[in-house]
């Protein structure tokens, strides 16, 4: 070779290293393609197991070695844990992370920790490993390097001579929980809620209706207790019967009723003053006469000699019922 040609060859820029980023997103997503690019030669891949006769229950290191990739630093790890054929063979598959290889590395190794499921003779599943050969014709640029399966035999576990270790755990985990009726599991249905509200409404209505049927007198009294003045007067008259001076208590309760119900001035205390006050309020004369007579009877008993029969509070109750329009 002439010296000039050698000089030109030395000075010419090196061809750029192929990168997976040169591919379209669709090509990059192709099944079984993990980013390997060929720099001209064939990319190869192979399995290696840390032991070909592992005992059951032990962990093995499975190594996938990829050689001759032009972009070793860009290769991604095949996800063996997501593959059914590997999961059938191994109960546990975990990635063993390793350092990212330099761009000029001759080979890349991916390590996995695996634990065989069962005893017997097996063969590692074959792995289809696609790589991209830029120099090949356009329709044959994706080429396949099959990773040939490796046979191995899972043997019986070795006789354990390890010391007996007790099972450790939180204390409550070593108790069987017994079922209880309360609280019931699940949740109340709409029927429970409807039954509750409907039942409460029906029982309340039944109570009111039943009470009115069974206690008609009480129902009548209830009607006149509609106003606070009447309610207070009736409560006081009921208490008057048990008081040491029933007549005075009856007169006081009746006067209070007249004050609260009709607005009679509190200054009106004597029978005559009450009658005058009620007249100013335009009440019917017969009612005024009855009220005045009741109060006079009370005064007569209170200021008469001892031994006169007291005025019954029932007389005042009768008047109130009559005035409130519920007398029988």
């Amino acid at each position: 070779m002439p010296p000039l040609a050698i000089l030109l060859l030395v000075l010419s820029p090196a061809a750029p290293r192929p990168s997976v980023n040169d591919l379209s997103p669709v090509d990059r997503q192709r099944d079984d393609f993990y980013g390997a690019m060929s720099g001209g030669g064939k990319v190869t891949a192979a399995w290696a197991l840390s032991s070909d006769k592992p005992p059951i229950g032990s962990d093995l290191t499975l190594t996938l070695t990829v050689t001759n990739a032009a972009n070793p630093h860009e290769l991604s790890r095949p996800p063996l844990a997501d593959r059914d054929d590997f999961r059938k063979l191994f109960a546990a598959i975990e990635d063993i992370p390793g350092p990212t290889p330099p761009p000029d590395a001759a080979k890349v190794e991916f390590r996995y920790k695996v634990r065989p499921r069962a005893e017997g003779a097996f063969r590692l599943p074959e792995l289809k490993y696609l790589y991209y050969a830029q120099a090949a014709p356009p329709d044959r640029r994706f080429q396949t390097a099959f990773v040939v399966g490796v046979p191995f035999t899972v043997t019986k576990p070795p006789v354990s001579k390890s010391p007996v270790v007790p099972l450790d755990g939180p204390p409550q985990f070593f108790q069987v929980r017994n079922g209880s009726i309360f609280p019931p599991s699940g949740k109340p249905t709409a029927g429970w809620w409807a039954g509750l509200l409907g039942g409460a409404a029906v029982l309340t209505a039944g109570w009111v209706v039943g009470w009115r049927v069974w206690y008609p007198d009480a129902a009548r009294l209830a009607r006149i207790r509609r106003t606070r003045a009447v309610r207070v007067a009736l409560d006081r008259l009921r208490a008057a019967a048990r008081s040491p001076d029933p007549t005075a208590a009856t007169a006081a309760a009746f006067r209070r009723y007249l004050h609260d119900r009709f607005g009679l001035p509190y200054s009106a205390t004597t029978p005559a003053e009450v009658a005058a006050g009620l007249s100013e309020l335009n009440l019917p004369p017969d009612r005024i006469a009855e009220a005045e007579e009741l109060l006079r009877d009370c005064d007569a008993v209170r200021f008469a000699a001892a031994g006169d029969a007291p005025v019954s509070p029932d007389e005042a109750v009768r008047l109130i019922e009559q005035w409130e329009g519920v007398a029988t």
């Binding site: 609280p183 019931p184 949740k187 109340p188 429970w192 809620w193 509750l196 509200l197 039942g199 409460a200 409404a201 029982l203 309340t204 109570w207 009111v208 009470w211 009115r212 009480a218 129902a219 209830a222 207790r225 509609r226 309610r231």
Partner: peptide, 26 residues
């Protein structure tokens, strides 16, 4: 939810008794 139902039942009893007494013995 059963706690809520029990609480609602108690409240319904109080409301029912209160209403019943309001419309009977006042």
């Amino acid at each position: 939810p059963w706690d809520v139902l029990a609480f609602a039942a108690l409240a319904a009893v109080l409301a029912g008794v209160g209403l019943a007494r309001r419309f009977t013995t006042r």
